[in-house]
Write a protein that binds this DNA or RNA. Structure first.
Length: 602
DNA sequence: TAGCACGACTCAGAAAGGTGGTG
DNA sequence: CCACCACCTTTCTGAGTCGTGCT
C-alpha cells in the first residue's frame, strides 16, 4: 500500500512538471489544413512533390542504389551488444506533422447537462468530443475511466461550468456524437488525397544517402488515454503536443523548420540513436518516438541481426538446456529457481516480464508469477506432472494453458510454492537481471526474449517440413502453410479478438438452411447436390478454421518467425511469395526475399 | 557497487480504413 | 448501380524488454 502511494505521489509530481512545461498557445495551421476538395488536394500534391524532393536532398555522395540492392549480402552480422555505436552519418527529415487545430462545434451542437444544452469552454468542449467518439464502447462503463475522465474534464471547465456540472451521469454527449458521425461521412474521399499529400511532405527522410519511409510521422493527437485491461490511468486526458514539446534528431546542416511562429524544444545530432523526433506523453510520461519504417534498410539490418542471433541458439541449445537441468538439482535455491524459470521461458514460451511501475495494469510474466497463477496436478487426463498456468500476460491477454512438465521442474515448483500465500512471488530469489546475466554467460548476446524468436522459427520450419512434405497442389500447400503458421502463433499465445470461426460457423448454418429450404421446395437436384458439396467442404475445414480463428496470425509472422524460412519454402514449392506475404511484409522482408534460396534452413 | 529509474527500442492487439463480392 | 457486409490491410499507440547511467 505504501509503495503504491509512493508511486502515485511520484507520478503526480512528474506529471505536474511535464504539464507545466507544455505550451498552450495555438499552433498555426499548415496549408494542408485548408484543403476542402479533391481538386485542391491535387494542385497541392503537385507542388508538394517538388518540395519533398527538396527536403530529402542529401550530401552523401555514395551511390545509394548500390547500398540498397546488396547490403544484406555484404553484411557481416554483428552479435547483439556489439552493434555499431554510430547508427547514421547523415540524417535529414521534415519534422513531424502536427494534428489540426481544434475547430469549435456549431452553435446547435451542444453537450446537454441534465437535459439543458451547455456552451462549454473550448478546451472542455474538445474533451467532450473525445468522449463522444467513444460512445457505445464498454470502456465508458468502467469506474476508473469515469473517475479519471470526469476529474480532468472538470479541470478544463470554467469555474461557472464547474459549479453546474457535477455528475458525469447527467452529461449527454449524444448530439456531439451524431454531429461527428455526419462530419466523418461528409469528408469521405478528401482524406485519401490529404494523406498522400502529407506523406510526401512528412513521410520520407534521407538517411546516409538513402530515401526511406518514416513509420509514424504524425504527432499523436490529443485525446483520452485508454490503456489496456484495468489500467489505473484510463480516462486521463492526453494533452496536445506542440513543437515546443518536440526534440528533433538530425544532421546539423538539415534542421527542419518548426511550424510558423513556433520553435522546437531542442535539436540534437545524436548519431548513436535512430529516432528522428521525440516528445513526452502527458499521461504515461514516457517518451514517444518518430522512427523509421520497418521497410527501411536500417530496420532490415536489425531484423537480420535479430534472426541471426536466434539462429545461433541452435548451436548452443544443448549446452543451455544441460545448464538448466543441472540448476534444477542445485542446493542453491536461486539457481533452482533460475533453472526452472529458463525452462518455462524455453519450453512454455513465457515472457520474462521486467519490473513494472505501480501505475500500469496488473499483468504478469515468468519472473512476476505468483503462487495463485499455478495449479499443480500429479496426473491429469492421463498425463503426469501437469502444471496449469492461469494469469494475465502482456497487453492483458489471458494466458491459460495446461502443460506436462519434467518431474524435476514439477517438484521444484511444488517446493517454491510451499509455505507461501497465494499472492506471494513464485520466484522470490530471482530477478530479470540475474536471469539475463546467466544467459549471456552461456551465449554472447542471449537474453530471455531470444527464446521466443528461436522457438517460433524452429516450430514453423518443422511444421512446414512435416505438413507439406507430400503436397503439390497450390490450395493444399497454402492451407498447410496457414496451419503451420497458426501452430507457431498458438505457441506464442498470440490472440485475435475477431473470431473468424463465428463467420465459418455462420456459413455452415446458412448452407444447412439453404439445403432444407431446397428440399422443402423440391428444387432441382443439381442445386441440392452443389449445396451439399459446399457444406461438406465447409465442415471438413472446420477444425483448421478452429485453429486459425483462435490465434492472431500476423504477430508471429511480423515479429517472430524468420522470414527466410517462408521465402525458402515458397521457392522450394514454387509458391509466389505474394500469396503468403502481403505488400507490407514483402517490403519489410525485402532483404529475406533477396537473400534466402530454397535451401535455407533456420 | 548494487539497485533503481529511465531511454530506446521491439512487440502487441484494437480500431480504422480499404476492397471486393453479393443481392 | 448502389448499399451493405465481411474480410483483409494499415495505422495507431500502448506494453514489454533490456542496457545504461546515475545515486
Amino acid at each position: 500500500m505504501e509503495d503504491s502511494c509512493g508511486a502515485i505521489i511520484h507520478y503526480s509530481l512528474r506529471r505536474a512538471a511535464v504539464l507545466q512545461q507544455q505550451h498552450v498557445e495555438p499552433i498555426e495551421e499548415k496549408s494542408i489544413e485548408s484543403i476542402e476538395s479533391i481538386e485542391d488536394a491535387d494542385v497541392l500534391l503537385e507542388s508538394a512533390e517538388e518540395e519533398s524532393l527538396e527536403i530529402i536532398q542529401c550530401r552523401d555522395t555514395e551511390s545509394s542504389d548500390t547500398i540498397r540492392s546488396n547490403w544484406h549480402e555484404q553484411l557481416s552480422v554483428s552479435v547483439a551488444g556489439s552493434e555499431d555505436k554510430i547508427k547514421w552519418h547523415s540524417l535529414q527529415h521534415g519534422g513531424p506533422l502536427f494534428p489540426p487545430r481544434y475547430k469549435r462545434l456549431p452553435d446547435n451542437v451542444r453537450m446537454c447537462y441534465n437535459g439543458q444544452p451547455m456552451k462549454l469552454s473550448t478546451a472542455a468542449e474538445e474533451a467532450a468530443t473525445w468522449y463522444a467518439k467513444l460512445l457505445g464502447r464498454p470502456v465508458l462503463q468502467n469506474a476508473i475511466f469515469q473517475a479519471n475522465f470526469f476529474r480532468e474534464f472538470r479541470m478544463l471547465m470554467r469555474p461557472n461550468e464547474r459549479r453546474i456540472i457535477k455528475d458525469l451521469e447527467l452529461c449527454d454527449f449524444e448530439r456531439i456524437a451524431q454531429h461527428l458521425q455526419r462530419q466523418k461521412m461528409s469528408q469521405r474521399g478528401v482524406g485519401q488525397h490529404r494523406k498522400l499529400l502529407e506523406q510526401h511532405h512528412f513521410g520520407l527522410c534521407c538517411i546516409d544517402g538513402e530515401l526511406e519511409m518514416i513509420a509514424n510521422y504524425r504527432i499523436e493527437p490529443a485525446g483520452i488515454f485508454l490503456g489496456r485491461g484495468k489500467h489505473p490511468l484510463m480516462g486521463a486526458l492526453k494533452h496536445r503536443i506542440r513543437p515546443e514539446d518536440v526534440t528533433i534528431n538530425c544532421s546539423p546542416y538539415a534542421v527542419p523548420a518548426a511550424p510558423a511562429g513556433h520553435h522546437w524544444k531542442a535539436v540534437q545530432h545524436d548519431q548513436s540513436v535512430v529516432w528522428l523526433a521525440r516528445w513526452r506523453d502527458s499521461v504515461t510520461l514516457g517518451y514517444k518516438y518518430m522512427q523509421l519504417s520497418s521497410a527501411s534498410r536500417l530496420q532490415g539490418k536489425r531484423e537480420l541481426n535479430k534472426f541471426e542471433l536466434a539462429r545461433r541458439v541452435s548451436s548452443y541449445i544443448d549446452r543451455i538446456r544441460q545448464s538448466y537441468w543441472e540448476d534444477w538439482k542445485s542446493p542453491n535455491l536461486m539457481q533452482r529457481q533460475r533453472g526452472v524459470a529458463i525452462y518455462l521461458i524455453d519450453r512454455v514460451m513465457l515472457r520474462v516480464c521486467s519490473d513494472k511501475s505501480e501505475l500500469t495494469a496488473d499483468c504478469e510474466g515468468c519472473c512476476r508469477l505468483r503462487v495463485e497463477h499455478l495449479n499443480l496436478f500429479m496426473e491429469l487426463q492421463g498425463n503426469a506432472y501437469v502444471v496449469e498456468f492461469n494469469f494475465v500476460g502482456k497487453d492483458c491477454t489471458k494466458y491459460r494453458r495446461q502443460v506436462a512438465v519434467n518431474q524435476h521442474v514439477f517438484e521444484n515448483l511444488r517446493s517454491f510454492m510451499q509455505r507461501k500465500l497465494p499472492q506471494d512471488q513464485l520466484f522470490d530469489q530471482l530477478t530479470v537481471k540475474m536471469l539475463n546475466q546467466h544467459l549471456r554467460s552461456l551465449m554472447q548476446g542471449l537474453t530471455a526474449k531470444v527464446f521466443r524468436t528461436y522457438n517460433a522459427s524452429r516450430l514453423l520450419q518443422s511444421s512446414l517440413d512435416e505438413l507439406t512434405r507430400n503436397l503439390t497442389s497450390p490450395e493444399e500447400l497454402l492451407n498447410a502453410f496457414a496451419i503451420a503458421h497458426a501452430n507457431a502463433a498458438k505457441f506464442c499465445n498470440h490472440q485475435g479478438a475477431q473470431s473468424k470461426l463465428s463467420s465459418h460457423k455462420r456459413a455452415i448454418r446458412a448452407k444447412q438452411l439453404a439445403i432444407s429450404k431446397c428440399r422443402r421446395s423440391r428444387a432441382n437436384t443439381c442445386r441440392l447436390l452443389q449445396l451439399q458439396q459446399d457444406l461438406d467442404l465447409l465442415q471438413s475445414s472446420l477444425s483448421d478454421a478452429e485453429l486459425r480463428s483462435s490465434v492472431a496470425l500476423s504477430t508471429s509472422k511480423v515479429n517472430y518467425v524468420d522470414p527466410r524460412i517462408t521465402v525458402a519454402w515458397c521457392k522450394k514449392h514454387k509458391v509466389p511469395i505474394e500469396q503468403v506475404f502481403d505488400a507490407a511484409l514483402c517490403s519489410k522482408f525485402d532483404w529475406a526475399i533477396t537473400a534466402a534460396d530454397a535451401s535455407f534452413r533456420f
